[in-house]
Design a protein around this nucleic acid. Sequence first.
DNA 1: TTCATTGTTCGACCTCCATCGAAGCATTGT
DNA 2: ACAATGCTTCGATGGAGGTCGAACAATGAA
Lengths: 226, 226
Amino acid sequence: MKDGPDLARIANLVGDPARANMLTALMTGTALTASELALEAGIGLPTASSHLTKLLEGGLLSVASEGRHRYYRLAGPQVAGMLEAIMGVAATLGPQRVRPGPREATMREARVCYDHLAGEHAVKMLDSFLARKLLVRDGKEIRLGKDGASHFAAIGIDVEVPGKSRRPVCRDCLDWSVRRSHLAGTLGAAILDKILAEKWARREKDSRVVTFSPKGKQEFARVFLG
Amino acid sequence: MKDGPDLARIANLVGDPARANMLTALMTGTALTASELALEAGIGLPTASSHLTKLLEGGLLSVASEGRHRYYRLAGPQVAGMLEAIMGVAATLGPQRVRPGPREATMREARVCYDHLAGEHAVKMLDSFLARKLLVRDGKEIRLGKDGASHFAAIGIDVEVPGKSRRPVCRDCLDWSVRRSHLAGTLGAAILDKILAEKWARREKDSRVVTFSPKGKQEFARVFLG
DNA sequence: TTCATTGTTCGACCTCCATCGAAGCATTGT
DNA sequence: ACAATGCTTCGATGGAGGTCGAACAATGAA
């Protein structure tokens, strides 16, 4: 009767509306303070604090104390992936989706997933990388292709791995909107950094949405879609 | 504040221990009756019935009435995939795993995931298929390679797709124990059928565990690992 | 019909937990 | 030192929902 890992324990953590809102907010990848998360979830500070300790003890979040602030973030990409998986089921199952809404459309196009880009653009980008053999699949893993490192270096993406970090350079992450993979890992994160640094796109405030400027979209296509 | 699909609603469904046990039991892919599920979850019939209607309305289960029995099953492979994703987080996060236990070891080696094989053997098998180009990745999709259909037909796996079914022939599914992909879809299901039909392995009663006989393991390696 | 099996519905109980106000700590700034 | 900010802890409240017994409905068998 007790097969495998404890589903209920961690699903229950996600199952509360307030906590779910917090986790969704943290899907942006940015670390947020307790008060910001309380505002996001629409609850008081004491309640938020209580939820946060539960998520912390549950292992879904990590925290960094800095001065009198405490910055909460998702415990890792794996947690983000699980949340996307649940969103995927909720999205296809949810007949109570009253209206797609404009917000929804922009989310499907481009959004932040933890620390990398997700959505249609991101899926196309990974497809292009694989087609050009800059990246190659190896089982579930994705690795740099023969010319991968030099190519990414040439376009200003620092792909060197210090060897210390456990985090893989490339990883794939299932997209809840497109139902295909996009690129995660340090490479995915570096690419998002570059896009924002070059101001090809900007993040909408308090949202996962990423909106490209017309010119930015061109540049993105030129540089990343080959 | 309300970004994307409704996480909490469906996570909450999985978050109750009784419901989680039911869902875990249904990960075997077999349809079970309400009383079987009540026994599995360790609760009374009325309680089970209440949970089942919730899971049904929530869209995680489907039901088929047959005589005075009502057979419940997971709503689809997508739900199974989500459950495995949550298990993955629970497994790596769960420090309260007191002891791995023998049950755990056999689960890692080979188990049923909804309707196909999962675990180390299954991961190796997919690796082999990809290496021999019987299957090829295409983005997130997995498709039959050039010689794929004929090869599988030769070893007695009927891979023809009636065209009617929406279900993909090949799909990958993330393995919570090995953290790599294994083969799902109709092909994955057909292969599991074959393994059981040939009696190379048998299912443990009321469990996801699949145990290979020594001879069966040899045959499995010969036929599927090339 | 009569009985047995299987499931659902109803009602009542009871536990759990999300919530907030107020107080307590810690850190920073003046 | 004193005040202000950010957050946690404590205590009390209230509501949601999981639980089961009993009654009811539906099917199948004797």
